[in-house]
Amino acid sequence: MERILIEAINPWKPFAFRELFRYRDMFYFRVLNSYRAEHRQMVLSYLWIVIDPALKILFFSMVFGSIAKVQTGALPYVVFNASAVVLWQYLGACLNASVTSLSNDTVLVQKVYFPRIFVPVIPCIVQLPNFAVNLLLVLVLLACRGYPPTLELFWVIPLAVLSVLWAAGIGLLLSTYVVQFRDLRKIWVTAMQFMIYLAPVAYPLQAIPAAWRPLYLLNPSATLIEAFRCALLGRPLPLASLGLSAAVCLGMLYLGAVAFRRREPTIVDTI
């Protein structure tokens, strides 16, 4: 028989695997149903998955490609930009949703127990199908412009996994604080609008002075975007900085989970 002990938990072992496994169906249905609910009662329903990134690519191509004339070497700007926007669209949506997830679910958290550690992770999974659709469309666009997929494309899978880990890590770290200090929500939503410029989406990595590049690439968002572009265009990936980023992502996930578990037992009291 199951035995539940209500006392202090050890936050340094943040993953209660057996319990998480028991609630796996809850995880599945929350993912499935948040996805369904997101597109209910909309005229354009699933078209919205595509509209937003398409507008982003259009905007960047006009402002940075045609007006500011950002140099992207031999690549046409649209190709350069579209190959990065796909991942950013996903990563940005995850970061946004994950960090604010717990404060959107306060009613639930106040009324029923379930492993709360799922809450910031769910939005990152919910966004995956949209990411796949966008990826497919951009692959078609790239092929039309003369950049057909190569074997390097398989790198997309580990890159997507790392993106989930990265976004979930940040979400776990910050979401409990967003519940208590609601200013953080405003700060985060504003910051996210600028975060895209901390990654080589609108401009090439070469635009960053060589001396600063290692520091710049410490941000997994930047490395993942750069690696993703390489994977789509069939170029060799920056494996060294990617390895470092993977370590940062895993570290953040653990740190985030520890911070989350430390605050989880009494988070309800701060709502």
Partner: peptide
């Protein structure tokens, strides 16, 4: 709320045998 694990107690402990 404490027994259903929605919030943790400040002091003391509780044990429950079985699914809640």
């Amino acid at each position: 709320k404490i027994l259903s694990r929605i919030t943790a107690p400040t002091t003391g402990r509780a044990e429950i045998f079985g699914r809640v």
